[in-house]
């Protein structure tokens, strides 16, 4: 009854069950869709490398990219050892 009154009068201190469902759905779909094939990951690695190479010299063999996930989020984690910075044209 209290919950009902709070809702009617807009005191929504209780999270609506819809927003809970939304959040759970968002996460579960992300987990399900995470199914990245090694091939796609390799393509991503090559593209990333090309971009970075314009700015710095990197150790291509030691470069690592992975998707990591915990309960709250999914992150693309890249570990890219830099060998040398390029001299960028000064502004």
């Amino acid at each position: 009854m209290l919950e009902f009154l709070q809702r009617i009068f807009g005191k929504d201190s209780l999270k609506s069950s819809k927003s809970v469902a939304q959040e759970r759905l968002r996460l579960v779909l992300m987990h399900d869709r995470l199914d990245l094939s090694p091939q796609v990951l390799e393509e991503l690695r090559c593209d990333l490398m090309d971009v970075i190479k314009d700015y710095m010299e990197i150790d291509e063999n030691k470069m690592e990219i992975n998707l990591e996930q915990d309960n709250k989020c999914v992150a693309l984690v890249a570990n890219i050892p830099v060998v040398k910075m390029k001299r960028l044209p000064s502004h």
Partner: peptide, 16 residues
């Protein structure tokens, strides 16, 4: 239930 915020709405499902 949608109005009360207790059910996913059409837009929510489409968005996902």
């Amino acid at each position: 239930m949608v109005r009360m915020g207790d059910m996913l709405d059409v837009e929510d499902v489409i968005e996902h």
